[in-house]
C-alpha cells in the first residue's frame, strides 16, 4: 500500500505507538495515508481501538512481517 508519510515507532512500547500516531495524523492532510511501523505486539489491538474511537481517522490495513507490525491510517476529515 502506498503511503504519503511514514512513522517509525519500532522499539517503542505502550502508549507511544498510539500517541505518536495521533501526533503524526494531526499533521496529515485530509485523504493522506500514514504508514506506522511498530514492534510492540500490543500495537495491533491498540491502534485498531484508537482509530475506531477517534473521529477523522480510518484504519485501512494492518500487516505483520516477522517482528514488525505495519499499520495504515488515513485522515478522513479534520
Amino acid at each position: 500500500m502506498d503511503a504519503d508519510e511514514t512513522l517509525d515507532a519500532t522499539g517503542l512500547s505502550c502508549p507511544m505507538p498510539v500517541v505518536k500516531t495521533k501526533q503524526a495524523t494531526d499533521d496529515l492532510a485530509v485523504g493522506d495515508v500514514l504508514e506506522v511501523r511498530a514492534t510492540d505486539p500490543g500495537s495491533v489491538s491498540d491502534l485498531a481501538g484508537w482509530a475506531d474511537g477517534t473521529s477523522g481517522v480510518e484504519l485501512l490495513d494492518q500487516t505483520e512481517d516477522g517482528d514488525v507490525y505495519t499499520h495504515y491510517v488515513r485522515r478522513t476529515e479534520r
Binding site: 505502550c14 502508549p15 498510539v18 500517541v19 500516531t21 495521533k22 484508537w50 474511537g53 477517534t54 473521529s55
Partner: peptide
C-alpha cells in the same frame, strides 16, 4: 501518565 496520554490521543 499512560492513561492520560492515551486518552489525549483519542482527543
Amino acid at each position: 501518565l499512560i492513561l492520560a496520554t492515551t486518552a489525549a490521543a483519542f482527543d
